[in-house]
Design a protein around this nucleic acid. Structure first.
Length: 580
DNA sequence: TTAGGGTTAG
């Protein structure tokens, strides 16, 4: 075709050039596309954009950025298409600085009005884990299309905030936008995360009625994953067996499902079956799915065989794969091998440290585990909650005081430990850590919230029962909670750290200081007027979610200033993007 | 010439 174009004398036409670049980068390879690009006698912004998006769509982030820099070098300015093409590259290469600079450029040149540009910004921020920025872009968009909604729903789903993602899905339907296949892929993942079996089944039915399984392998994989997350492996495997299309991710999803539901033998059977399929090549995801199954069964021989295979392609140096190997050697009793592998791989994140600390713990080497924890901090690696769980189990013989000796003045560790105990229902642990913190003079500040009504500032402490309008306040909260529940609010009891029954947990959440202040604001000011709250600590996560519902039900703007930031709640959405 | 999706360790 290129020859025909040359014969017909169209080679100088920039539109033809851009189309050729586009066509070649999709079907013929980037080399051919780049050849057309460099041989073009005249290039306009469109030609550069075609080349940038060509590199980007094929995952060549570095080359895409290189072309962009050359384009700038020739004095050409980015337009809305350039920006939309380059933003996914920033996400791919985890380049926050470039992403922010391009966003500034967008604002300076008024490009945020373009729906492609804004959608690309939502997606980039989401992939960089900056949910708050995604939310802000979405919030200020004047025109939102299906892609905008899919992007913001996927953003919350992928950053593990499924409740908000589901709320946005409902809102999308409320404003009259019909879901497409990509919406349902996110929805399946949301329902798996929320363990909602009833709605999950109806989503499965919806997909079947639309015959989407024949259309795209991704939706089938999403359904297998959804059932696996619900613990319904019989349904997951039935869906898998009937998939018209299967790729490596379908297999990985099935294997992971079995392994994570404690069915290690079934995971290994599935892996062996997969090995029989000629066109399926295992990838990193396969190894991190199957290795834990071998660890679980103590199947060292099969595990070392996999290690051998991985040495040939250097995949054993991948931090996730290596962590699985460390864990396997640790669990199978080969601590020396676990240690030597640990010192061979990159250790910038907590992931491999957690695995080796946990391995040392299994073998009763509490002291050595503690030493590694110190080394980890000395190397500037941040500990996370898994580190503490690993350390706690490692130090179980010597149950956690030793852990607090490392940094005994850091009140955060006490709160973290106490929350960890609370989450697993070990209330005696909670009491012990709290009294330890109290003994050391590290008490937690009591939370209070204030609200201004007229010229008077009212202050509420959590659980206040003495305010003159106490009865009205709690009545208002009861009515609000019922309305909130009718439109999807589910109380999140993980924010209640007391060992009490569920109805009591709900009462505790309802009597948080910020909620009392909001309720007082509602009953004391004219309908529709804004409410301003100040909280001395960070606002509780469940109260944050509840306030979104309250802003929608009461049609009021609610501004909460907490110790961390401003939250502006309006029509069911918070300006902070739920990432505070 | 432009934007969106599925699996994964501790």
């Amino acid at each position: 075709m290129h020859c025909c174009i040359l014969k017909m004398g169209f080679e100088n036409d920039v539109f033809v050039g851009a189309s050729l670049i586009n066509l070649y980068s999709r079907f013929r390879g980037l080399d051919s596309a780049y050849k057309v690009f460099v041989e073009m006698p005249v290039r306009d912004v469109g030609s550069w954009n075609a080349m940038i998006s060509g590199f980007c769509q094929n995952g060549n982030a570095a080359e895409a950025l290189d072309v962009l820099n050359k384009m700038k070098g020739e004095g050409l300015k980015m337009d809305k298409v350039t920006v939309s093409s380059i933003l996914p590259v920033c996400a791919q290469s985890n380049d926050v600085v470039s992403g922010l600079l391009i966003h500034l450029y967008v604002i300076k040149h008024g490009l945020e009005e373009d729906v492609f540009v804004s959608n690309a910004l939502i997606n980039m921020y989401s992939k960089l884990g900056r949910l708050q920025d995604s939310q802000r872009v979405f919030y200020y968009m004047k025109v939102k299309d299906l892609v905008s909604w899919n992007s913001i729903i996927a953003a919350y789903e992928q950053n593990d905030v499924p409740t908000t993602a589901l709320g946005l899905f409902k809102e999308m339907q409320f404003v009259g936008i019909r879901p497409d296949l990509l919406t349902v892929v996110s929805l399946a993942s949301i329902l798996g995360q929320l363990s909602d079996e009833t709605v999950s089944r109806s989503v499965h039915g919806f997909v079947m009625r639309h015959e989407w399984l024949e259309k795209d392998v991704v939706i089938g994989n999403a359904l297998v994953n959804m059932y696996a997350k619900l613990g319904a492996m019989d349904c997951a495997s039935t869906v898998f067996e009937h998939l018209p299309l299967r790729d490596i991710i379908s297999w990985n999803t099935l294997i992971t499902g079995y392994a994570q539901n404690g069915l290690a033998s079934e995971a290994i059977d599935a892996f062996n079956k997969m090995e029989q399929c000629e066109n399926i090549i295992p990838n990193q995801g396969t190894w991190v799915s199957i290795l834990p199954a071998y660890s679980h069964l103590g199947a060292l021989q099969q595990g070392t065989k996999i290690h051998g295979r991985l040495i040939k392609n250097s995949l054993y140096l991948d931090v996730f794969v290596a962590t699985c190997l460390i864990d396997m050697y640790g669990k199978c009793g080969w601590l020396d091998d676990a240690m030597s592998l640990f010192y061979e791989i990159p250790r910038e994140t907590s992931v491999p440290w957690n695995a080796i600390i946990s391995s040392l713990g299994i073998h009763g080497h509490g002291e050595q585990a503690l030493q590694l924890f110190k080394d980890m901090l000395a190397e500037g690696v941040n500990a996370d909650h898994i580190t503490f769980i690993s350390l706690l189990s490692a130090c179980s013989h010597s149950a956690s005081n030793r852990l607090l000796e490392v940094d005994s003045d850091n009140v955060g560790y006490y709160v973290l430990l106490s929350n960890m105990y609370a989450n697993v229902g070990k209330w005696e642990g909670v009491t012990k850590v709290r009294s330890l913190a109290r003994d050391r003079g590290l008490s937690k500040t009591p939370g209070w919230s204030s609200v201004v009504v007229g010229s008077i500032v009212e202050v509420f402490y959590t659980g206040n029962q003495t305010h003159p309008k106490c009865i009205e306040i709690y009545d208002e909260l009861r009515v609000l909670t019922a309305k909130m529940k009718s439109i999807g609010y589910v109380p999140d009891y993980s924010f209640v750290l007391q060992d009490v029954e569920e109805d009591e947990k709900e009462q505790i959440l309802t009597s948080h200081s910020e909620r009392l202040a909001i309720a007082f604001g509602i009953i004391s000011t004219p309908p529709g007027s804004p409410i301003r709250i100040f909280k001395n600590l960070r606002v509780c996560g469940d109260c944050h979610n509840a306030t979104k519902y309250i802003s929608r039900i009461t049609e009021r703007d609610i501004v909460v200033r907490d110790s961390n930031r401003f939250h502006h709640f309006k029509d069911g959405i918070c300006s902070c993007g739920d990432y505070w």
